[in-house]
Each structure stands twice: as C-alpha cells, then as structure tokens.
Amino acid sequence: MTDPIPARSFGSAKKSRWFAVGALVVAGGAFALIASGRIGNNLVYYWGPTQMEKAGQKAIGATIRLGGQVVPGSIHQDPSGRSLTFEVTDRHATVEVHSSGIPPQMFRAGIGVVVEGTMTKSGVFESNRLMVSHGSQYRPPKAGQTVDVQDQMKTTTGLAGEKIR
C-alpha cells in the first residue's frame, strides 16, 4: 500500500511483544482448559437414555434434554394431532417420551431427536420441545421417488417404501 501515513511512534516494540505473549498465554490457556475437558466435561447438552436411567430419581422434576434415536415402530400419534408418544434409544437403554405439539417435518422412525422436558414418576419423559437432529449425509431422491415436503409433514413415517436404518 502506497499511501503515506504520517510517522507516529508506536512506543517500544519490546513492550508490544510482551503484550502479544501475554495475550497468547491467556488465549492458549483458555483453549487448553476447554480442549482438555476440564470445562468441557461439565458442558453437557443432552443426556442419553443410559444416563437418564442412571440418574433415576434425580431426573424427576428437573428440566433436562434427552437425546437419542427414535425406535422404529414406537411412534403413536394422538388422534387430535396435538401430541405423540415414541421411544428414544441409544442402543443400551430406551426411554418412553410423551411430546406435546406438532413434530418437525423431518421427524420419523430412526432419526435422531433431542427433546426438552422432564422425567415423570411414571417413567415417561414429558417433553414440550421436540428437535430433530440429522447427520451430515445428504442424498438425492432415488429414481421415481418424489419429495413432497407437505406430505412428509402429515406423517411420521418418512418417505414411502424407504428402509429405516
């Protein structure tokens, strides 16, 4: 760049290098603390069904997020359409979930979900916030298959004729 900028002293370069070292130490320390899991292990976004089972009584009444896969064949929609029940699994344990509200369009058997709510004494997880979690795998529709998002919203079975993982 050619524009002449009037000379102005930045002070001693030695001093500013110490600033660089200090800032790097602070940033590196913060990063190392998080990366080593000293902070990270306390940051739990959701519990799996196994952790939920282990927690037992502690899970009752507290606001918790539960994450896992929807068990195929376990989805039962309320005739009014306002709520549904399904099971969430991590392949070791399974928790029954009762969710109020309309599920997102992507909700179907076998997909990942995160539900927010609380465990009830009857052992059913009562949720008022259902979120669908999808992987980073994207596929075009197979030949002859149509993607009708409006239609998918009405059902919880996904695409017709597709095998559930």
């Binding site: 930045f10 600033f19 990366a35």
Partner: peptide
C-alpha cells in the same frame, strides 16, 4: 489510533481462543 491498534490487537488474540472451539 496507536492505543486503538494495540488494545484491539491484544483483544483479538484473546477472543481468538474461541475460534478453534
């Protein structure tokens, strides 16, 4: 301008800790 440059450089390095996270 000199203080602005110094201070924001230090603050940028500290804030950068979050980027790899």
């Amino acid at each position: 301008p000199v203080r602005r440059a110094m201070w924001s450089a230090v603050a940028t390095i500290v804030a950068y800790a979050d980027v790899p996270v």
